[in-house]
Amino acid sequence: MSVDYSNKLVRNMLDNKNNKRKSFIIYITGGYPDLKTTKRIILGLDSTRVDVIEIGIPFSDPIADGPVIQEAGYLALQKGTNLHKILALTRSLKGKTKAAIVLMGYYNSFLSYGISKFVKSCKNNGIDGIIVPDLVPEESGKLTKSAERAGLSTVFLVSPNSTKERIRSAALKSTGFLYCVSIKGVTGQRKKLPEIKDYIRKVRSITDLPLAVGFGIGNNAQAAHFLKVADGVIIGSEIIKNIKENQGKANLVNSVIDLVKSLKKGL
């Protein structure tokens, strides 16, 4: 796809890559612990100068997620969170964040909203990009076509076992960055860190897109490990855990800010 520099996600990721800066992408579950707090967390995250904020759309059957994000999504749904409410939230933040805002959700949430209507709403409500973990490039025609027309980014995922052909088709349909899943598995922390040098090298031989690695990144040392070869890291479960621990406390947002600062330190 052509590079649309007017898109904030594309611009943030590309500027970083061109200036040899690493990108930080933070995932939070929309509506966890509640929508008001989500808004405060987003503004807090933006103050730490992260490059992209991914808002997870909670879904009843999140097959790509580990227990931490599953639970957050479950509780957000219990509170009545839905895509409409999250889009209303991002609308209220439109133009107020330096970070690009990306929605990450399972395909059925978007399908049920109506794909072209969803893309239009994203555009009108301050969304820069969309990530759908259960949508592979060959099934994505409708979404990518509408998104491209609207100037909205789509980011596809590749995995350590993806073939070259599959990486190529994911890259061709992605704008902003390519989401490189670090391990075969679901989201959440691992004890053992995978070696990703050969994998990332393979992906780089196919595409010039900025490469962000996600799944299983929980601390500064782990982020540093992946950033030796990748352009960015995506951190989710660790943030959600921190939110859970500080839920209801006055310093919740500050503690998330401190965590992100410690994750970014020196990188």
């Binding site: 097959i63 790509a64 395909y107 973990p133 259960d134 949508l135 592979v136 060959e138 099934e139 596809f156 995922l157 590749v158 995995s159 350590p160 076992n161 993806s162 073939t163 599959r166 994911a170 899943v181 075969k184 598995g185």
Partner: peptide, 20 residues
Amino acid sequence: KRGYFGKYGGIFVPETLMPA
């Protein structure tokens, strides 16, 4: 070829499962 019976079916899974 893509596993569709009319408009139903297909493959909607995380990328990691595609090679399998």
